[in-house]
Amino acid sequence: MSAVAQAVEGSIVTGSIYGLVGAGFALLFRAAKVLSFAQGGFMLLGAFIFYSLEEHNGQPFLLAVLITMTVVAAFSGLVYLVVFARVAAREAFATSVATIGLAGVLQAVVSIKYGTAPLTLSGVVSPHAYRFLSAVVPTADIVAVGIAALVAGALFVVLRYTPLGLRMTAVADNASLSVHLGVSAARVAALAWALAGGAAALAGIAFSLRSAVDPVGVADVGLLAFPAIILGGLDSVGGAFVGGILLAGVQNAVQVSIGTGWLDLVSFALMLAFLYFRPTGLFGKAEAVRL
């Protein structure tokens, strides 16, 4: 019983982190029809900025989180305006490819500055663990899930109830028409990039609190968020969180039943199966077409 409860706890926490990265993917896909491979890079950047603020500057936890999120969000929005706006105007596909380059640059910059060995965050959150339904729940896990819940709630409100959410949907649907109707597609896309960057930075922090500031581990999570968003639906921010938790659940089951070596195989096979049988994922919408 306790093993099952622990597996469920692990799935929720890991899935929340997948969801944080995946929410950024979904946002960018909604607002710009771009599949960004740079989310892992922004996650890494966030993790290391947070590490620097905590370990070198001794900033209080909440302040360090806010500064990291703001800096990475601003950087992400700026990268869009300076580099990607012109590429994106031509072809969303070209932007998606260009994000691979951006991810490479971010990873290289971080490894030049901090090296490639995992770094430990010492004493940032309490080492105390709670017991809940026979599962052991460390404080870091509660913080990770809390961050994910806050981001999910905030994005839900922004997308569902604010003019910005409506504009993002419109720009993703038809950017040219949006401009002809007075909506600045470039500004909307830059804001989407900023929000996605901020979410990725928070994912980097959440991941690092649980294990270590590990370039390889962070990049892996960035990649594993892909199956999560395909499960949830490419354009569904809520789906990213549900897909993330489902994927983490499957991974936990695989790990317990057949071994860690099968994790990636099953994860990506699941993604391919969804792409084949249900390409819109669990919550994505099919295109509305009437001939």
Binding site: A170, D173, L177
Partner: peptide, 11 residues
């Protein structure tokens, strides 16, 4: 009011 792509198809 453009000739093509004049509405948001998925909204």
């Amino acid at each position: 009011v453009a000739e093509r792509d004049k509405v948001f198809a998925n909204m």
